Amino acid sequence: MSSTTIASTASPAQVQLRSAEDGVLNWNVRKTEGLHQVPTFTDKEAERNWAKQHMAAAFRTFARLGWADGASGHISLRDPINPEWFWINPYAMHFGLIKASDLVLVDHSGKPVQPTSHKVNAAGFIIHSSIHRARPDINAACHMHSPAGRAWSSFGKGIEMLNQVYEGFGGIVLAEEEGSRLADALGKDCLNLILQNHGLLTCGSTVDEAAAYFIALERACANQIMAESAAANGVPKKFVGEEEAEYTFKCTGTPACAYMQFQPEFDLTVALSDGKVLD
């Protein structure tokens, strides 16, 4: 008869870590500030160009992961020069083709700030305009109809250990009131929403942070669906304890950590495009 041993983290072994200064560990559990850093700029034009390049790369990353959806789906970016404007993707351009120069700069009435031959999706504009107006702390927002997110959203439930679900989806967001309700659902400090029967919405202080949260939430939805399938066949679920979850969040739930989480995807996307995404 064979036996299986299940590892438990209830009594962790005592490990002596070398300090970050004289070792090669990527971080010290007591100090992560030196590793996770978001670039800062004194030149606002340079910051705008950098942010647009990362935004374009996020679109191509989402396309590579299979989340392009025809003319649907958007990422928005608050303009570093004028916070009352924001960048958004052109209507009906495939995510996998978007370059930084293709992005459209609009004000909160939907008027283009710079000359452009592109149009902007009205429903997407309303969602993102409402969020940027309601939450000055949010500089970027991602909304996609990714497969696992859309599938899990049909249950009207949050991911276990997450609790923000927007239950009042009223169809295509063509009414300003609907966009306002989405912004209200985010509240004052939430960054992620599951839109019932619709998809996912994630936000952040940078495009990289919002994109990293979107990737994580989409994968969490996929994991939840698989876990629910197993549970339906009699396999009980085990939940992460509140103390462990809180500790993990303190270590990895910072904007800078989320920013770093997206950098491997950014680098790969730039390489696969031969740098064209940055144009």
Rank of each mutant, 00 (worst) to 15 (best):
108 H>M: 14
84 E>S: 12
49 N>T: 14
39 P>G: 06
112 P>H: 12
55 M>Q: 14
127 I>M: 05
22 D>W: 07
134 A>T: 02
53 Q>S: 10
125 F>Y: 07
131 I>A: 00
52 K>L: 15
62 F>R: 01
52 K>M: 15
121 N>P: 01
77 L>Y: 02
75 I>M: 15
66 G>S: 10
54 H>L: 09
106 V>F: 07
116 T>Y: 06
66 G>N: 09
62 F>K: 11
41 F>P: 08
106 V>W: 08
121 N>C: 11
76 S>T: 12
145 H>A: 05
75 I>V: 15
92 A>P: 00
43 D>H: 08
137 D>M: 10
113 V>M: 14
145 H>I: 03
39 P>I: 04
66 G>T: 03
78 R>L: 01
41 F>D: 03
145 H>W: 08
146 S>K: 09
107 D>H: 06
17 L>V: 09
120 V>W: 11
39 P>L: 09
108 H>G: 04
53 Q>K: 15
148 A>Q: 05
133 R>Y: 00
28 N>I: 04
120 V>L: 07
109 S>C: 11
129 S>G: 11
87 W>D: 10
117 S>H: 13
52 K>G: 01
67 W>M: 10
141 A>T: 13
70 G>V: 03
25 L>W: 12
58 A>Q: 09
44 K>T: 11
123 A>V: 10
96 G>K: 05
118 H>G: 01
28 N>T: 07
45 E>I: 11
22 D>L: 10
50 W>N: 05
34 G>E: 14
123 A>T: 04
56 A>E: 04
102 D>F: 03
116 T>G: 05
55 M>P: 09
118 H>L: 00
101 S>Q: 14
129 S>N: 14
68 A>F: 05
69 D>V: 08
62 F>L: 14
139 N>G: 09
145 H>L: 07
53 Q>Y: 03
18 R>N: 12
47 E>W: 03
17 L>H: 14
132 H>M: 07
131 I>C: 02
